[in-house]
Amino acid sequence: MSESYDYLFKFLVIGSAGTGKSCLLHQFIESKFKEDSSHTIGVEFGSKVVPVSGKQVKLQIWDTAGQERFKSVTRSYYRGAAGALLVYDVTRRDSFNALANWLADARSLASPNIVVLLVGNKSDLESQREVTFLEASRFAQENELMFLETSAKSGQNVVEAFSKCAKAIVTKIESGELDPDRIGSGIQYGNLKPTRNSASAATGRSCPCKV
């Protein structure tokens, strides 16, 4: 059975090495914490269909390697991404300090309209925290990012992070701010083929039994 969806979004997960990017992806897709997770070399992929504002959205997620050395290649992954989770580790200040660089890369190399959600991961390790919620919120506000703290270990806020980012993209499509037809938008139509002004179409399609 092939899966049905209205949109497909290309998503990136970026951030310094060891911040838990792969574990976030694994938790999102498998709803489990991955023990003995290996560090990512190059890029790994995952995908999942999530319901967002009455639409089925397939997220094609590119989980990238965090180490600086891979940037000559990871930069090519950015092209045509619609959304990104920018991840730091709340227990490691250096991963927070590196955010500005990551963000600059995302904005210059992906679509300029890329929707970025800041993720402070490992929130379960409260006693080792080095970056406060307040400080990160301020950074998010200054850079016009959405922000959540997550724990890939407990699963807290993980689905929310992906959904929230996807929802922001859907909203932008519906308001006309994002044009899925533009090349490099990182958005494709799925087999359910919504139109841009699709609120009524979606209602009609989703409840055929009530007709």
Binding site: S38, I41, G42, V43, E44, F45, V73, S76, G80
Partner: peptide, 19 residues
């Protein structure tokens, strides 16, 4: 499928298929 750059093979090449 926009995968013509074969970037998904990065790990294969770098680690000589070890993983």
């Amino acid at each position: 499928q926009q995968a013509g750059d074969l970037l998904f093979c990065y790990r294969w090449l770098l680690l000589e298929l070890k993983r």
